[in-house]
Design a protein around this nucleic acid. Structure first.
Lengths: 244, 244
DNA sequence: GCGCGGAAAATGTCAGACAATTAAATGTAA
DNA sequence: TTACATTTAATTGTCTGACATTTTCCGCGC
């Protein structure tokens, strides 16, 4: 009945899997109520703490939400875009930081994906998106801005670019790619000169989107990708020279 | 000290957040051992079951692994690409299925991202990737293949295309986009005629990659995107007519 | 009809106990 | 001395039972 001799222990993982499968396969629909903890405990023949551990696992993945009180309980949760963004970003950031991903690799992936957004963004960008981009460009020009703030502004600029494509699925997929780069970028230092260069390219991108010109936007993004790469290589060389 | 009057209850969530932050911010490194459950309970002034619920939350996100026995405990886990793929796919699939994402939206996102891979794939594709693609094309031509198997083969083909770009970060980002489309595609039916069309385009893509020809590959992908869109619209119209 | 208070149901938390597992320490014999 | 078996201690996994807290519903009095 419940063979699965694979993992004799970790009952809570098995129970979590069973419920997760039911949700993913559509056997439980959004806002449907799960049996109470006591009922689940009886059903799976385990104690309530074990069931609770399983439910917490699901809650951590935003698969369920719980509500206290009478007629409360655990409910299948509609996964919102915001939460999905958040999970995406956490996972991407950890993946990059824990696997010693080369700066070039992450950079290449990020700009390849962003360039995929450019044609759509050129077509659909709203005044709102343009305003956000202009505002960030302005911030990036302020003297005395710390490297970290400069990076944060860069991320906001690029997210606006992605969002301008007007496709929430695309925004979701790229949230991780854009945000996860920030820790890698934070390790670099930006000279006055390189900031000027970047701001110039950002301006070019915003102008191109405003003019609905996809090919110029793509060109500027390619330039920006290339320039970012050289920045990374410079930093590496400098470090190598220092180590010698 | 630990006020946080925002959420009076849900201690396990707070504890999980505290530990998660420590990991994400790099205060704990890979393979570092967390304090034992009893120690954590004392540290946070809660009971062991509460600590355990927090740890299960982290385990669900693959942030830690636990080991029983003396000198066992919870350890910060290196997030592998495989696990990251898996989480990506689960989240993407749920996001699409729970938010009534339009077929066109998902389709647009997927092909925009895939086309971003095309130039890199044309440059770097290995014989292995080409062989996988050819094999799937062959499978797709077999008569009597179920729609579901056809879709599964389609996914494998496209993942080979993405992997051919030789950038694991890109592969990770696209895993969700490609796989999450499968349930949406499974709802369609593929006539003999449409399968022929798709197989033709797949062959064109494989040929272009083999010839290192990025622009043809891109063109074929654009055609495939357009054709897939019309398939989806046909299906919608047919359903609408039936409902009338 | 309308507020109000208690009952009931459910999750959140705690305490203590035992089982299972594992690595290190210890002891023993060749 | 070395190799192997045994004990031991630390730690997670699970269970039982209890109490606290939150929230809804129902009936009661007005």
């Amino acid at each position: 009945m419940k063979s699965e001799a694979k993992t004799p222990s970790d009952l809570s993982a098995q129970i979590a899997k069973a419920i997760r499968d039911a949700i993913v396969e559509g056997r439980m629909i959004v806002d449907e109520r799960l049996p109470s903890e006591a009922e689940l405990a009886a059903e799976f023949n385990v104690s309530r703490p074990t069931v609770r551990e399983a439910l917490k696992r699901l809650a951590a993945q935003s698969l369920i939400r719980t509500q206290r009180g009478a007629f409360g309980g655990a409910f299948v949760k509609r996964l919102s875009y915001e939460e999905a963004y958040g999970q995406q970003i956490t996972t991407s950031t950890l993946l990059l930081s824990m696997n010693a991903v080369r700066f070039e690799t992450a950079c290449e992936a990020r700009y390849a994906l962003e360039r995929a957004c450019a044609p759509l963004a050129a077509e659909r960008r709203s005044p709102d998106h343009l305003a956000t981009m202009r505002a960030e460009i302005h911030r990036q020009q302020q003297p005395g801005l710390s490297d970290e703030s400069f990076c944060a502004s860069d991320v906001t600029f690029h997210r606006a670019l992605v969002d301008a494509a007007g496709n929430p699925v695309l925004s979701y997929q790229l949230a991780g790619a854009v945000e996860a780069m920030q820790p890698l970028m934070n390790m670099k230092t930006f000279t006055e000169r390189s900031r000027e260069e970047i701001v110039g390219l950002h301006t070019g991108i915003a102008d191109a989107l405003e003019a609905h010109d996809a090919s110029v936007a793509d060109q500027k993004l390619e330039d920006l990708a290339a320039y970012t790469l050289t920045l990374g290589q410079d930093a590496m060389e400098k470090r190598a020279r220092k180590a010698t």
